[in-house]
Simulated assay, not measured.
Amino acid sequence: MGLDDKLGNAGQDAAGKAKEAAGKATDDERLEAEGKGDQVSADVKKAGENIKDAFKH
């Protein structure tokens, strides 16, 4: 994975955390769940990157 992919995943994770926090602050369960989902998606992508990086070396 390239640097662009890693930065994109980090951005998705940060956006997910922001959505989750906004959802908690406004009692919007849908927004909170959406933020958690974004974070999980970013974590899965990061895990895939780590596996690919492990096979490069």
Rank of each mutant, 00 (worst) to 15 (best):
G11N: 13
G16D: 12
K24P: 00
D27K: 15
D38P: 06
D28F: 04
H57V: 05
G16Y: 08
K46N: 14
A33P: 02
R30V: 10
K19Q: 12
D4H: 12
N50K: 13
S41T: 14
S41R: 13
E49F: 12
G37I: 01
M1T: 04
K46I: 13
F55P: 00
D43R: 10
A33D: 10
D38G: 14
A54P: 00
K17W: 05
Q12P: 02
G37E: 03
K52I: 08
Q39M: 14
D4P: 06
A54L: 04
K17T: 00
A14R: 09
E32F: 00
D27S: 15
A25F: 05
T26H: 05
D43P: 01
E49P: 07
D38W: 14
K24S: 03
D53V: 00
D27I: 03
D38N: 09
A14C: 06
A21R: 13
G37K: 03
K19A: 08
N9M: 11
F55N: 04
E49A: 11
G23A: 09
N50Y: 10
E49K: 10
E34Y: 04
N9V: 13
S41G: 13
I51N: 06
K56F: 10
F55H: 04
E34L: 07
K19F: 08
H57E: 12
D13E: 11
D13R: 12
D4M: 13
A25N: 09
S41C: 04
D38M: 15
K36T: 06
D5R: 08
T26F: 01
